[in-house]
Design a protein around this nucleic acid. Structure first.
Length: 903
RNA sequence: GGGCGCAUAGCUCAGUUGGUUAGAGCGCACGGUUCACAUCCGUGAGGUCAUAGGUUCGAGUCCUAUUGCGCCCACCA
């Protein structure tokens, strides 16, 4: 079954853990070895090994990575590395996003610093400039992800503006256009006057602003002196009013419906219409209708066939419709208009009013609803299958509550305005024939169209580009070569998990789902895992202007990428926002140091044991009782390793990454280091067989632990694994450990040992025994005496009891004078401390302990005395209570006798 | 207006199907240089699990209401 020796020469580890030297160069080695790519010829086609496929949410190439990126890189890397170790062909596909409006905005800002606008450069030169920026940014982002340890397949790196994804965009556009789902129409859309482009609903963020509600007075035509008052928060738009609307049942205005009113200043006549949308209780119950500048008014206008009068220019100034106010900025115009209305006696009540105002998500400018000719994607038909997938459970959300957010949005979906008046992005693949008399519109998936296919005339491409999220929505298949039927597409579509932030469920996740279903006929992934946002140590959102940005690269340089990753994972729970500061990362680094030193210790122990660790293809061979003479201590740590392995595996299956990391930290630090290693030191000073047993057990447990930790701390674990006895060339491609059966007897005995040791240590401290002093102890262990006898040296060493005087017996002697009594579960110990005992203090201590034991006994009795409890609780739970009662009774008895003996 | 989340030790947070005496790290107190680690070890103090009801043999965990904080959605003239 085994060969001896290790395949790799064990390395000496330096005195202390230096993350920088551990991490340096390691990534390049993995990359060069090709570990990041799925094995050739493996994948869905082969059937029996379903691949694990995850497409990275492509970071925007607009700047440096922030700690939020480190968060998703860590989560996805854990999934990728774990699945790889589970033996699944794993593809984690990296990429980057051109970021449309955000990308253009960054470069425009650069230009602004040079006193230039994009128009100074012209479209072509501007795009060259953007490309140059993106290229340099792309390199940095890749480098930063490597520093973080992202095990992505760089050979498949994709950029949204690359030829492949661009062709996918054109193909989808054409296909959906031919199907009638993409159409061009003149609608009311959201317009950013600064960016000078249309926006989708999702790119508009609303903020409450304090303003006023102005009452305007319109004269009723043909009835001198009679006025109708309308309330508005936007007086400057009244030039575009084409009606006044009142509720059909509003008696105040019933006689006015069908008649006209006169707009002040410009004297235009507009009708009064009845529309149920109007709330008679709000304002005056009469509302000015401006179809070209308000979504509600637009709807009313549609219903009553009202004209649309646009009163603003695309740059946010008033146009000729505003008469004397032409050329003024909107805000400026508002004040001037109000002043003029007041002067003309057309202004009524003015009162403070708070309402929410839409702003451009990118630049913060107030967004204007405008009538504009744009391209739209009809959503109703696309949304249905995407909803169905969520309803029937074929699409899962982690955590599940986000499913409702997703479905709620799709249930209330509006058509998506996909055209943008930008230069940076995917050009709309539509050409218009310029020949006189020919009105041909050509939609093509080709990169260029030279001439009109019907008349041969010259053509001009639509100047607009697509919303950046259009290409993002195609990402799960455009990155795999679609529209070509590539091997990758066959092997890796559909994917498995989409890991991203909950803030882009609408913007991105929903769009990938409906595009995937429409274009590929299959969901792009079965699970959506959503992480929370990362905040600073005070819980504030990070921003450069606040100066509270945690730079993941600086953090990695100081504490190591492993520490940053571990800190991010253990800082909170899935999908909740987490806070992160340097202190937490430092603690994670300390954990790394602990592992480092535990490994150093193990290597030293193995060397000094003189034994050779036996290794097979699954690493150090699991030591057996027959071959190695395992003791309770070894059996305990092996059992704990098994339990931890099983639990961590389950946590990973359930996407509970933080809990998995915490359990591993707890196991390795508390159980392995604080207890096993300390206890094992006894036998390392013992016989040759004992040393060999400890060496094999340590090698086994540590090697497995390091493997379990690998997805979380890839660099450190690789380094330690290489130093430990192992087989194989990298921990990255080693197998995920399997769990064995629990050894309940060993666990019970060792737990008793721990409890007893803790009790004795506590008694020593409380009695003021010097830390270094060896004391006497007599342990009364009842039926556990034999088992404890097996670990008497460990007990003696850990509790600092001199081995010569340690007595472990089944029966309690009648009298032990001048001693301190320790109870630990079922067992007790007497510490004869001649001359050191303050009898009064000891009596007080005993009384206090008796009190606690009695309280415990009372609680257990109460539980068991409850007939309903005994009748209905499961037998297992009742048994626990019986045991609890027995232990408490025993403790009361022992302590009471001791108290009596003290006199 | 609708929806979601959070509230647990001085601080930051865990606690997946309800089940002994609710955990960790930091901080705090006391003590430790014995040959892995002071980036460490040992011991300890510290919590009416926001409030009020309810379901249950049993509630930090499930239900209802309330308070406070945060977020999302919505056509708030």
């Amino acid at each position: 079954m085994t060969e001896t020796g290790t395949t790799t020469e064990s390395q000496e580890l330096s005195k202390s853990y230096d993350p920088t030297s551990v991490e340096r160069g390691m990534y390049d080695g993995w990359d060069a070895a090709g570990y990041f790519a799925p094995q050739d010829g493996v994948g869905r086609a082969e059937g029996d090994h379903p691949p694990f496929v995850m497409v990275m949410p492509p970071p925007n190439l607009t700047g440096e990575l922030h700690v939020g990126h480190a968060m998703f890189v860590t989560l996805e890397d854990i999934m990728a590395r774990w699945n790889r170790m589970m033996g699944r062909p794993t593809l984690w596909l990296p990429g980057a996003d051109h970021a449309g409006i955000a990308g253009q905005w960054v470069v425009e800002r650069q230009l602004a610093r040079e006193g230039l606008t994009r128009h100074d450069l012209g479209r072509e030169a501007f795009l060259e400039r953007v490309w140059a920026f993106m290229d340099s940014s792309r390199g940095r982002v890749r480098e930063q992800m490597r520093i973080l340890g992202a095990s992505t397949d760089w050979s498949r790196f994709a950029f949204t503006m690359d030829e492949g994804p661009s062709r996918a965009v054109r193909t989808v556009f054409k296909r959906l256009h031919d199907k009638g789902l993409i159409y061009r129409g003149t609608r009311l859309i959201s317009w950013c006057p600064r960016c000078r482009t249309a926006l989708s609903d999702l790119e508009v963020v609303y903020r409450d602003e304090d303003s006023f509600l102005w009452t305007l007075r319109y004269a009723v035509e043909g009835e001198p002196g009679r006025m109708v008052e309308v309330a508005t928060s936007r007086p400057e738009t009244f030039f575009g009013d084409t009606a006044v609307a009142v509720h059909p049942d509003d008696e105040r205005y019933g006689d006015l419906v069908g008649r006209n009113v006169i707009l002040p200043i410009i004297g235009r006549s507009i009708p009064v219409v009845a529309d149920a949308h109007v709330d008679p209780a709000f304002g005056t119950g009469a509302v000015k209708v401006t179809p070209a500048h308000d979504p509600n008014d637009y709807e009313i206008g549609q219903r009553h066939d009202l004209p649309q009068i646009t009163v603003m220019n695309l740059d946010g100034t008033m146009n000729a419709e505003a008469g004397p106010f032409e050329g003024m900025a909107i805000r400026e115009a508002r004040e001037a208009v109000v002043a003029r209305l007041q002067a003309d006696g057309a202004l009524g009540e003015v009162r403070p009013h708070s309402h929410s105002v839409g702003h451009c998500d990118r630049c913060g400018t107030v967004v204007e609803p405008m009538i504009s000719k744009q391209w739209f994607l009809a959503m109703e038909g696309l949304a249905q299958p995407a909803l169905q997938a969520a309803y029937d459970g074929s699409l899962t959300f982690v955590p599940e509550r986000h499913k409702g957010i997703y479905t709620n949005w799709l249930e209330n979906i509006h058509d998506w305005c996909i055209s943008r008046q930008l230069w940076w992005g995917h050009r709309i693949p539509v050409w218009y024939c310029e020949a006189p008399g020919c009105s041909e519109t050509i939609v093509s998936d080709a990169e260029t169209v030279e001439s009109c296919p019907s008349c041969g005339g010259t053509v001009r491409q639509d100047p607009d580009v697509l919303d950046t999220w259009f290409s993002s929505g195609l990402w799960p298949f455009s990155t795999l070569g679609w529209p070509d039927q590539t091997d990758d597409l066959r092997r890796f579509y559909p994917g498995s998990v989409m890991e991203t932030g909950y803030d882009i469920i609408f913007l991105w996740v929903s769009r990938m789902v409906f595009f995937g279903l429409e274009i590929m006929g299959e969901l792009p992934f079965h699970t959506v895992y959503l992480h929370g946002l990362v905040r600073d140590a005070e819980g504030a959102k990070m921003s450069k202007t606040k100066g509270n940005v945690v730079d993941p690269i600086a953090m990695s340089e100081q504490y190591g990428a492993d520490a940053l990753r571990f800190a991010l994972m253990t800082a909170g729970s899935p999908a909740n926002d987490i806070k992160i500061g340097p202190q937490r990362v430092e603690m994670a680094r300390n954990f790394g140091n602990k592992l480092w030193n535990a490994t150093r210790f193990a290597l030293g122990a193995i060397r000094e044991s003189g034994a050779t660790v036996r290794v097979d293809d699954d690493g150090p061979v699991r030591p057996t009782a027959e071959a190695y003479g395992l003791t309770v201590t070894d059996r305990w740590i092996l059992s704990r390793l098994d339990a931890t392995t099983a639990s961590v595996t389950q946590q990973l299956e359930n996407y509970q990454f933080g809990e998995a990391a915490r359990q591993l930290q707890d196991f390795t630090w508390s159980e392995l280091c604080d207890w096993y290693i300390e206890a094992a030191k006894v036998r390392l000073r013992g016989t040759e067989d004992e040393r060999a047993c400890v060496a094999q057990t340590l090698a086994f447990v540590l090697e497995r632990s390091v493997r379990l930790l690998h997805p979380f701390m890839p660099f450190l674990t690789e380094s330690l694994w290489q130093a430990l006895p192992h087989r194989g060339e990298s921990i990255m491609i080693s197998a995920w450990p399997a769990a064995g059966e629990p050894d309940t007897a060993a666990v019970a005995t060792f737990d008793t040992l721990c409890e007893l040791v803790r009790g004795i240590r506590n008694a020593r401290v409380e009695s003021g025994v010097e830390a270094g002093r060896w004391i006497e102890a007599r342990v009364f262990a009842g039926p556990q005496a034999a088992a404890l006898e097996e670990v008497r040296r460990e007990l003696a060493t850990l509790a600092r009891v001199s081995l010569d005087t340690l007595v472990i017996s089944a029966e309690e002697p009648h009298a032990v004078e001048q001693s301190i009594t320790v109870v630990a579960g079922d067992v007790s110990a007497a510490l004869p401390l001649a001359g050191m005992i303050d009898l009064d203090a000891e009596r007080d201590r005993l009384r206090k302990e008796i009190g606690e034991a009695e309280a415990e006994r009372t609680r257990a009795n109460a539980q068991l005395g409850n007939e309903a409890f005994v009748a209905r609780a499961p037998e297992k739970v009742i048994e626990v209570q019986r045991k609890r009662l027995a232990t408490a009774e025993e403790q009361v008895a022992v302590l009471t006798r001791r108290l009596a003996e003290l006199g």
